[in-house]
Design a protein around this nucleic acid. Structure first.
Lengths: 182, 182
DNA sequence: CTTTGATCTGAACGGGTGTTCAGATAATTT
DNA sequence: AAATTATCTGAACACCCGTTCAGATCAAAG
């Protein structure tokens, strides 16, 4: 995964991967039928991890609390696996159509978790979200973006960052009070 | 650019590129010293386009209007050049260190445009943004995310999408009125 | 119509690619 | 200790890579 993230699937050779684990290239074929399947297996394992980890979060009933949980979870989970996240987004084009469908299905299932929170919040009058699907995409893109700049040991701790992003997400979906005239 | 976006820099051969423009591979070397420089030139041209186009927007004085202008501009410009945007983000790792520096510098210059708008808005009390640099990254990530799902001819027009995203951005940076007690 | 300069071809260079497989080696079971 | 199974090596296969370059082809200038 590290090699794929750093150099790209196409640019990494089976001999390179083998070298990384101290073995000749041929030996890899005891573990994967081919390079393509190796990529797919890595990506699928990552998506399964993601869904399993979220399911284990036991999101609160209240949509606002659930949304905060989701935002913090997403940032934490993704920053801990920057290589896997990068590969799972970037190397989609190197999957066979059938494998692509599987990964996309898992991704959609994850997105649905957030969309569902938003829709419940709208139903309860807690959120002002005209297009839940679009807001879902926007929030996920924003949160995943942390990966492009966050580095451990910087000025801000991860909980700090979580709080800043959660604040932006909350304000983006929370109703604005009517203008306050007397 | 289309080939690089669709298959990845490493996976595209000079023979493929040549074929696409109806020529033999050797002929390409009348136009580029090597493949790496070809990638760099494409990416640099894209970043130059981006900065030039933004400078031509003549952003309004008022930070709120400037921010709206930026949000709409960013969505419009990027959705019109999905291939270039994808390549410029994803193939950074295939640039030599020196070329990487150049592209990163241009990207930072673009980000500074937004950061400057945010800082002016904070100074005027129009925005509530604790960390302008982080908000800059968050907003750009969110807006660029439109590229992952927007397709022409869908249910929503591009101006519709611009408006939805602008609304989220505005709310994310605009002060919340103090709780309204009687 | 010839000359000049730009452009393109097609072959070649050394080297890297994913994958296979017979035979060697190591680990486990009997 | 012997037999069996799992694992690894190292060479080979057919093929593709970026790049170079002598010679062919084309377009414009004199």
């Amino acid at each position: 995964m590290r090699l794929f993230a750093r150099e790209g699937y196409a640019a990494v050779s089976m001999r390179q991967i083998a070298g990384e684990v101290g073995v000749q290239a041929g030996a890899l074929y005891n573990y994967t039928p081919d390079k393509q399947t190796l990529l797919f297996d890595l990506m699928k394992a990552h998506m399964d991890d993601l869904l399993t980890a979220w399911e284990a979060e036991a999101a609160p009933e209240h949509p606002l609390e659930a949304l905060e949980r989701f935002a913090r979870f997403h940032i934490r989970f993704n920053t801990e696996r920057a290589d896997a996240v990068f590969v799972s987004y970037m190397e989609l084009r190197n999957l066979s159509p059938k494998n692509f469908e599987v990964i996309e299905g898992l991704r959609r299932r994850y997105e649905d978790q957030l969309e569902h929170i938003l829709r419940r919040g709208v139903a309860l009058g807690l959120f002002d979200v005209a297009e839940p699907k679009i807001t879902t995409m926007a929030v996920i893109a924003m949160l995943t973006g942390v990966n492009t700049w966050f580095r451990d040991g910087g000025r801000l701790s991860l909980p700090d960052v979580e709080t800043i992003y959660w604040d932006m997400v909350r304000r983006a979906v929370t109703p604005e009070p009517a203008a306050n005239r007397g």
